[in-house]
Amino acid sequence: MDQIEKQKVKELNGKGANGESSKEGRLNVMKTYKIYIDGKFPRTESGRYYILKDKDGNTIANICQGSRKDFRDAVVAARKAQHSWASRSAYNRGQILYRIAEMLEGRRAQFVAELMQQGSTSVDAESEVSAAVDRFVYYAGWCDKYQQVFSSVNPVESSHFNFSLPEATGVVSILADEETSLIGLATAIAPAIAGGNTVVTLASSSKPLCAVTFAEVLNSSDVPGGVVNIITGYRKELITHFSNHMDVNACIYFGEDKDQIKTMKENASLNVKRPLVYSGDDLLSDSHQNPYRIMDLQEIKTTWHPIGQ
């Protein structure tokens, strides 16, 4: 980091937690980072928090240490929202995802600043925000297309009209990438909601700032409450709950930890959840966006009807 950037970060940090003022005579207003459940921003019901520090050991913020109860509340909200989200027209879902991209772009400066507070260079921060915006644009476009690409009319031998099409798997719990603050979140959430699922996401524990700001973007992007829920906290503590909840239909894990993956998959078997594991490598690249990420969270439904009299 060069000197100017260091100064920038210092100023940003100065905004907040340690109470310094950036300009003489005026105390900056600190941001309280809360979790996002059912379209609202509560604190964790547990009342717990952890301190997020920058590289130099300065406090950036107190972050909610989300609990099992928070997760369960979020699943209730996600379940409640799922049917109506999936029932919206594909065109409407596409517009809402595009709106997310617009709002992300509009708040670019804030995301860049937060990424830098969490250790990114300004160049990396800029490209991460760009990639996140583009990812939502990419999946916004898929909202009304994957059904056509992956449906079929099946030429059965008997006199029936028979067709198969994808439907959302349901409520999806996501253990988002730990190493990134924004692009990991976008990569996990966009294909899930593009396909009509609702999600409960655990943000990166070490880089949670963008997740909370992203929730604010969602809140102002016409995304109905409950469609995306975001919790901050520790993966180690919450992975069991994210994977063994009986009203969750799929669980996504970003990362490489073999023991955690095994735990997640074993718990998934309790109610035949669809467990999905994606690498967190090279998240900015196009290899992390394709319609198969949508299809991983779809069920194929086949309908028969007689042709006749």
């Binding site: 030429p155 059965v156 029936h160 028979n162 798997t169 194929i300 086949t302 028969w304 009807h305």
Partner: peptide, 30 residues
Amino acid sequence: GVIWANTYNKFDPTSPFGGYKESGVGREGG
């Protein structure tokens, strides 16, 4: 995963079969 309207228990090699939720993962057929 499979809904029969005004018919029931029809099967065909071209027609995908398989379940949602605890009825399974993946499709067979088609």
